[in-house]
């Protein structure tokens, strides 16, 4: 291993890491918002929106992110005559893909809250909205935390296809450097290390939060 070369590449990888984090952060936040809304729609079976939501979930969960990104980056400009820049594409692509997964996670959390919880809250005179806000939502989020964290990790790993729409993320930098200097092993090792730097804290934090929340709410 050529450690000298690795030290030289470090700033490039670091820059790429910030890009990955920037896109990842916005994309994941977006996926939570989309997931929450879509889960509510599917849980309450809101007419019309329910069918659209199911179609969206199946479409995004059953196609590769790469193709979704290609559509947004290359095909949409041809159809509508205007495009969005690569970074925006990455964020939106991640948010839409993640939204479909988050929606499913969150819906299973909503479904897992006992119906008696809703009934007893209603019997105390709460409106449907108050039942959601104070009783069902907090419990559903707690029940979903574990798969939320799994989704976040999955989405962060999925960012490795961004290089395909010319975003200079970790994967892009690694491939670029390998092509230029043939230091394949060095670059791949650095790639692994940088992904670990990004994802490992999420994993650990997720476990801690999940344990805390579970204990607070249900004591198991």
């Amino acid at each position: 291993m050529d450690f000298g070369a690795m030290a030289e590449y470090l700033p490039l990888f670091e820059q790429a890491m910030w890009l990955t984090l920037r896109i990842g952060w916005v994309g994941i936040l977006g996926s939570l918002v989309i997931g929450l809304i879509v889960a509510m729609i599917t849980h309450y079976k809101v007419p019309v929106l329910y069918q659209i939501s199911l179609f969206y979930i199946e479409l995004y969960r059953n196609t590769p992110l790469l193709i979704q990104l290609f559509f947004m980056y290359f095909a949409l400009p041809r159809v509508f005559g205007f495009g969005i820049d690569a970074e925006m594409c990455g964020m939106l692509g991640l948010a839409l893909l993640g939204g479909a997964y988050m929606a499913e996670s969150f819906r299973s959390g909503l479904d897992a809250v006992e119906p008696i919880q809703t009934e007893s809250a209603l019997s105390l005179g709460m409106t449907k909205w108050q039942v959601m806000r104070y009783i069902v939502l907090p419990q559903a989020v707690t029940l979903s935390i574990q798969s939320f964290v799994a989704n976040v990790i999955f989405l962060l790993k999925e960012t490795s296809v961004f290089s395909a729409i010319s975003l200079m993320d970790l994967m892009f930098v690694a491939k670029d450097l390998i092509g230029l200097y043939y230091k394949t092993t060095e670059c791949l090792v650095m790639l692994v290390i940088f992904y670990l730097i990004i994802i490992l804290p999420v994993s650990i934090l997720g476990t801690v939060v999940e344990r805390k929340l579970r204990y607070g709410a249900f004591g198991s």
Binding site: I116, E119, A121, L124, M126, Y134, I135, P138
Partner: peptide, 28 residues
């Protein structure tokens, strides 16, 4: 109409006092 059900239906994420006071505060 105050209702009490057969199954334990307290809100698991709220303390005992919060279980009792939540509705009077947010509803009434």
């Amino acid at each position: 109409l105050g209702m009490v059900f057969q199954s334990y239906d307290l809100f698991p994420h709220k303390t005992i006092i919060d279980n009792v006071t939540l509705s009077p505060i947010i509803v009434q």
